[in-house]
Amino acid sequence: MIRGAWGRDPLLPRAFSLLAVGPGGTADILAKTVGRGTALLERALPGAEVDVLGPLGSNFPEPQADTTDLLVAGGVGLPPLYMQAAVAADRRQVARSEMIYGGRGGDDLVLLREMEAMGLNLFLTTENGAVGTKGLVTKALEARLEHHRGTPIRVMGCGPNAMLWAVARLARDKGVPCFISLEEQMACGIGVCLGCAIPARSRPYRYVCSNGPVFDAADVLDVEVTAAPVAPAACPA
């Protein structure tokens, strides 16, 4: 969770994924400007102070020597998968990972040279066809799942939730384990406000900040909320 000296408005810190952790306690994030908080971050000058609470939450499962990981990133969902690939590269296992990375247009795809330098196999898609294959990441994922059929693979996704649900359904239909890093509105980031709930099979609700953001897709995909609260649902607070 990150917040600058913004006064009273916007009030709450913003959630970001770590892109890379450098020496001496430095860290990189990749932020897309979508509203006021991110605009303020974009405008922040070098040396400006920000409050950082973290690192928080769960990671993708560790790379495994005998398993191919299909990393599926949508736009600014790249950071945790970039980090995952970097870990694999450090362990000289990058050949066991491939990155399927999509965006609306070519400008949405960043850090391509860095990922190539890791030796990562890249499959790029854009909705307008400017870079890579034209279409959505799910189309490219389908092709890669087909390519690896019969070998041990896992899917790991991060991006807009709608994309993640499509990715998770695809993986489920092919019987492939899948992990997704979800987004929800957040206030505290530490499991206290209970604002970032998502319906889950293992419990009526799990929290994106403290149980996630990375979830086993089987626990959170297409969950019907059946558990009725004890009192009427419209109780505020």
Binding site: L11, A187, C196, A197, P204, V230, A233
Partner: peptide, 13 residues
């Protein structure tokens, strides 16, 4: 008794 809370989204700024 334990309560599971409301449907989501539950908060906004």
């Amino acid at each position: 008794k334990p309560r599971f809370g409301n449907a989501t989204p539950r908060i906004c700024e």
